[in-house]
Design a protein around this nucleic acid. Structure first.
Lengths: 346, 346
DNA sequence: GTTAGCACTCTAAGGCATCGAGTGCTAAAG
DNA sequence: CTTTAGCACTCGATGCCTTAGAGTGCTAAC
């Protein structure tokens, strides 16, 4: 069934008011928010119908109405006004974005913090993952006789390093040989091809004395790839959640925070559909029990090389969707820009 | 004034009980905890005196007594039994420590998480800082014509990298020249000596075309040193705080969490005195307003090269000091061991 | 110095009346 | 047929009172 215009207007008024006050909304309150003037009785009738249709709920008789998750869904899909970013808003976003950093992980972490500050909600940030990530380049740097630093650069330009102590000292020549072998045999291959076979082949061309180093390097590379494919999860501004009246109940707040700190839960949150840039999950739509009464707004950002990261906001179901969506989207656009620009030049 | 043995016994009983129950302790409860049997009336008299002396407090007439911060102080300094780690405790600590990682920052972060799990309190971890940190080695790795990776190793064996895009392409020869210059002029010098003078001297020996790269490298080195000298702060298990009845009040909990998330506050917390390995700060002793009603237990760990990091626990003033101290100390010993072993061999 | 006993204090908890916001329904007006 | 005014009704929130119980301080006896 299609809602009448007036019903939509009333539903919108209820959501708008409830977003601001977190108190059940009565018919009188709705009247003052309506454009076309009607009496509270009319509104009452309409609200009773909206309740029957499942868009509103009553905590108890003689309280006002509260939007149901279906109501929020309708609001997000059809009713919500495109939030107009004010000059101050934009300035804030810009300012936050100007603070750019080189290291990807750190950048993403900082981005999460910024989003949290920008939206006044808890934020989650997931590092980008390209499905075809591999190692682009190895470098072995001698530090002292039995110590080398292993450096590797991935196809998405992430750099990782590890100190490696050797039981048998290696000469400079041997180290460069190992270096060459690593770059010849182990670059641009997928994780599952980094196996013993290949190590044996590389070894046969250089000599057994570098096996220790080779194995350590491959080990490290595999570690790094595995970790990159298991995207990192950052949670910021968790205390923001405590400011909302719905989490005055410490037990609820705690359950929620614990859930958000759990990597496994977070990586399973619904992402934007292919082609979409933003995805709003209301209440149970998140598919996670403990998140049944919060909403999650997620955008994806481009990190170059086809890699996509995620940036999201977690707040009460009555969050100001219009504002949050606008800011989040703007921010993720900016982030994509920075990441791609960084990639093209410097 | 010196407390009588019986007073001490009573004070200890009150603290012990209050630590467990978080409820004011009445005279009857104390009697059952006493070794030498006395009547509740006697205990009442003694408790009244202890209150006059400032060791106990009464939330209101006709509630039981609660230890004052002075009372906790006395408890920690004299009364507390050396907590005996059970086999299970030890096993837990061992297990946690076995999980070792190579990268220092990550290791410290994980250590914080472990401490939080081990003590069931919020934990703070600060990365070690040596007062004489400098760069031990530079390495410049060409990636493509205008892109190089800068790597540097610090005197405490921390490794950092940054991608650097050049406006003017450099040849392999030029890059190695820059590499040599960096290692010749900018290793093992303190941060404040990395100035224009020295850049000019290095440049005069090599040629102006590498200036861009030199400047970028020095810039990066200075950044890294500055950041290392500003120790990183990690907070873990913050939600643990929410489990204690004293933080059922969300506003208090939030103020506390916000305060602990603030780097500036955390680095100012009292550290163990030189020579000591552990420092207990009770209530106002932390010197931070917002932490007036929590206690902080801090140990330091050795990270080699004379660098010391900090590892601490934040909980209600009625925390189980004996248990927390024991576990924290054990853990930091283990951490020191790992860090030094890692340094010697590998 | 210790203890039993007792009056006293103060909070927590339950019961109860009151208040008021908000509803649903009805009947009249448009 | 829709809208509106009016009114009775519902139900949580608030405040007040009472009661129960835990714990104290004091006094007098041992």
């Amino acid at each position: 069934m299609k809602l009448s215009d007036r019903k939509k207007q009333i539903l919108k008024a209820v959501v708008d008011d409830y977003i601001q006050t977190a108190e059940p909304v009565g018919s009188r309150t709705v009247v003052v928010r309506m454009e076309t003037p009607v009496s509270s009785a009319t509104v009452r009738n309409e609200m009773a119908e909206l309740e029957n249709l499942g868009y509103l709920e009553q905590p108890h008789t003689s309280a006002g109405r509260v939007p149901s998750n279906l109501g929020y869904r309708m609001y997000v899909d059809e009713l919500m006004e495109r939030y107009h970013l004010t000059g101050a808003d934009l300035a804030e976003v810009q300012k936050a974005l100007k603070f750019r950093m080189r290291e990807l992980d750190r950048l993403i972490f900082e981005a999460g913090k910024m989003v949290s500050e920008l939206t006044h909600h808890a934020a989650i940030a997931l590092t980008p993952v390209a499905d075809t990530e591999s190692i682009r380049r190895f470098e072995v740097i001698p530090v002292d006789k039995t110590t080398v630093v292993l450096i590797l650069v991935t196809t998405t330009d992430q750099i990782r390093n590890r100190i490696c102590r050797l039981n048998v000292p290696l000469s400079g020549l041997e180290i460069s040989a190992a270096n060459r072998a690593l770059n010849a045999y182990f670059t641009n291959i997928p994780l599952h091809d980094m196996n013993g076979d290949r190590i044996a082949r590389a070894e046969s061309e250089t000599g057994a004395e570098i096996t220790e180093l080779l194995v350590a390097a491959i080990d490290f590379a595999a570690d790094v790839l595995r970790r990159i494919l298991n995207r990192e999860v950052y949670l910021s501004g968790a205390t923001q959640l405590l400011q909302y009246p719905e989490y005055r109940d410490v037990d609820r707040a705690r359950a929620l925070l614990d859930c958000l700190s759990d990597r496994e839960t977070v990586v399973r949150l619904p992402e934007p559909e292919p082609g979409e840039t933003i995805r709003v999950s209301i209440g149970e739509e998140t598919g996670v029990q403990a998140l049944d009464d919060v909403s999650v707004v997620v955008t994806s950002y481009e990190a170059g090389h086809g890699a996509r990261g995620l940036l999201g906001v977690v707040g009460p179901t009555r969050m100001d969707y219009a504002r949050v969506c606008a800011r989040l989207q703007k921010f993720s656009e900016g982030l994509s820009q920075i990441l791609n620009e960084q990639q093209r030049n410097g």
